[in-house]
Structures are given as structure tokens and as C-alpha cells.
Simulated assay, not measured.
Amino acid sequence: MHFKHKAPEKIPYAINRYLREAERHYEVLDKHMEGREYLVGDDYSIADISAWGWVDKATFVLGEEGLDNYPNLKRWFTSINTRPAVDKARNIAKDIQFKSDFDDAAARALYPQNFAKNAE
């Protein structure tokens, strides 16, 4: 999603290439979830907790349709998303002011590999 949302130059090939790869990953998860309630085994686990945070970003990755093309994954996500701990997690930082500017300092912190080592 870097090329779609953060790259200073929009490169259609890169945007499409990595969107298709993300879609492939969602498809793999969707097939895996067919007939399953949880990602691993018969019980809710750290795998579900961890994956939920990434799948929660489906609309950011895939667009407005989100998980609509992945019914098994959407069912799993909806099930996890209704748990009381999710509401608590979503509200944990509601009273914290976060920096919202994507300036040079933020770019250097998020993508240090894009800058020369001693460049200030």
C-alpha cells in the first residue's frame, strides 16, 4: 500500500502489482477459512488476534468493497470483530493526541532505508 498511499510518485505498475499480491493473500486466507471458525485449531488464539489487526485494514488495502469478495474471511472477521476486547482495543488510544502530519521527520522515521545514513 506504500505505492498507493505514501509514495511521492504514483507508479501505476507498482500500485497494481502490489494490490494484486494483497488480493492473492486475502484469497489464500479466504480459502483457508472455509469451514473453519478460527485460523488455527478449534479455539480462538493469538493467531486470530494478530490477523484481525491486519484484516481490519481491508478497506484501506482493497478499497470500499473490503472483504466482500472473500466471504469466509469476512465471516471470520465479523465474528472476531464483535468480541468485547475489540471494542476495548479500538478505544484504547482515543484520548491520545497523535502526530498527523506526514512531514520529512515522519518519512525518515517510517522509511529510514530511503534516506542516506548521515543525511540530516
Rank of each mutant, 00 (worst) to 15 (best):
M1F: 14
M1C: 13
H2L: 06
H2D: 08
F3Y: 15
F3H: 15
F3G: 14
F3D: 14
K4W: 04
K6M: 13
K6L: 08
A7N: 05
A7W: 03
P8E: 11
E9L: 04
E9A: 09
P12K: 09
Y13G: 05
Y13E: 07
Y13W: 12
I15N: 11
I15S: 06
I15P: 12
R17W: 02
Y18C: 01
E21M: 11
E21P: 10
R24V: 04
H25W: 07
E27K: 06
L29I: 14
L29G: 06
D30W: 06
K31R: 14
K31Y: 04
K31N: 12
H32F: 07
H32Q: 09
M33A: 08
E34G: 09
E34A: 15
G35K: 04
G35R: 03
R36M: 05
R36P: 00
R36T: 00
E37Y: 00
L39W: 15
V40T: 04
G41F: 01
D43C: 10
D43R: 13
D43H: 12
Y44Q: 00
Y44S: 00
S45N: 09
A47F: 00
A47K: 04
I49Q: 14
S50V: 13
A51P: 00
W52I: 00
W52F: 09
G53S: 13
V55A: 15
K57I: 02
K57E: 01
K57M: 08
A58E: 03
A58Y: 03
T59P: 13
T59G: 12
T59Y: 05
T59I: 10
T59W: 07
V61L: 05
V61A: 03
G63Q: 10
G63T: 14
E64L: 02
E65C: 06
E65A: 13
E65R: 08
E65F: 03
E65L: 10
G66E: 04
G66Q: 09
D68N: 11
N69W: 00
N69V: 00
Y70P: 15
Y70Q: 15
P71M: 02
N72K: 10
N72E: 15
N72R: 11
L73E: 02
K74S: 10
F77I: 01
S79A: 10
S79T: 11
S79H: 00
N81V: 14
R83F: 07
R83H: 05
A85W: 11
V86M: 01
D87N: 06
K88R: 14
N91M: 01
N91S: 10
I92A: 06
I92N: 09
I92E: 06
K94T: 03
D95Q: 15
Q97I: 09
Q97A: 07
Q97G: 02
F98P: 04
F98H: 07
F98E: 03
K99S: 12
K99W: 01
S100V: 12
S100D: 07
D101Y: 13
D103R: 08
D104C: 08
A105M: 08
A105P: 08
A106G: 11
A106Q: 11
A107L: 05
R108F: 07
A109L: 07
L110K: 15
L110W: 11
L110M: 13
Y111I: 08
Y111S: 03
P112F: 02
P112N: 01
P112L: 02
A116N: 05
E120Q: 10
E120I: 01
E120T: 02
